[in-house]
Design a protein around this nucleic acid. Sequence first.
DNA 1: GCTTTTCCCATGGCATCCCATATATGCCCA
DNA 2: TGGGCATATATGGGATGCCATGGGAAAAGC
Lengths: 169, 169
Amino acid sequence: MNRFVSTFTNKIDAKGRVSIPAPFRAVLERDGYAHGSVGGLYCYPSLDAPALDAGGERLAKKIDGLLSGLPDYSDERDELSVALYGDVQVLGLDGDGRISLPESLRAHAGLTTQVTFVGLGDKFQMWEPGRFAKRRERAREKVQHTRKLFSAGNRHSSPEEGGDEGARG
Amino acid sequence: MNRFVSTFTNKIDAKGRVSIPAPFRAVLERDGYAHGSVGGLYCYPSLDAPALDAGGERLAKKIDGLLSGLPDYSDERDELSVALYGDVQVLGLDGDGRISLPESLRAHAGLTTQVTFVGLGDKFQMWEPGRFAKRRERAREKVQHTRKLFSAGNRHSSPEEGGDEGARG
DNA sequence: GCTTTTCCCATGGCATCCCATATATGCCCA
DNA sequence: TGGGCATATATGGGATGCCATGGGAAAAGC
């Protein structure tokens, strides 16, 4: 497995440390994270959510790829560079697979005592558990709505239940 | 056979483990489940039913397919990602073909002592047996209704009825 | 010198692995 | 054709290893 999937919720301890879920660490290592030495977890505030985005080398390369598509010295590129790179922190994992989150990052996501890690394939996000619950609810509603558009006309199921022929997958 | 069909009911033991019905395991293995090692069963709350959806690699790829149409780092993609990936748990099968269900998933489906596995082709669902019985009853009524609409001439059954029979255990 | 960060170790809970058993299924042979 | 054996499957329990978490000590920064 080399994608981030599943969600996990871990504690922030008194020193501000959080364990990266073991499955995510495994993905990071496969992705080129030098175990025990430097290398790192690329982490930055999500552009459109009170959360943090994070990932390994692959994520960094993807960002590079996005930028390389834009002409040098264009306003667009400058803005995107700032947005994407400006707030990036490279966090080091300690021997036990933990990171410590800088105050600026913690503030952006409203993190206090717990962190919910959400796998999103190439990257993962870190949320304050309560906020994530709300966000997820919203996202689910949206998907339901989209699904109904997809399936309009070819299903007879009621909206509530029984519609197990889901286009969710 | 590489589709999930039939229904089976198995017990949840004291540790929260459930045996995946052997026929379903066979499908998962064909689908690319790395036996004995990592890899897994992708599992998430059904969008519109008090049940869990689950499947193997094929299901995961289907989800990826939905996202691949959207540009990276768009708001739309992030939101959809959260909805599709955010709820997904990757469950590992132990040597005896069992999974252990996290509390969050169990809660969504109201699972306590037993699980009814319902094959749906590319994926399968996990239901609390009582709830599934009710839902099936409703489905039957609907089928009857649909048949009347079709009126005479169209004799073969509607999709709902195909795999429901054959409960065991 | 004091505070903050990093490293290392201890521990307890939980998940996984392994083995044992009972029940059902199919097959073989009488 | 029927009985019995062999295999597969589901389920239970014990043990072991991993992992998240906490705390202390050493190192680095102010």
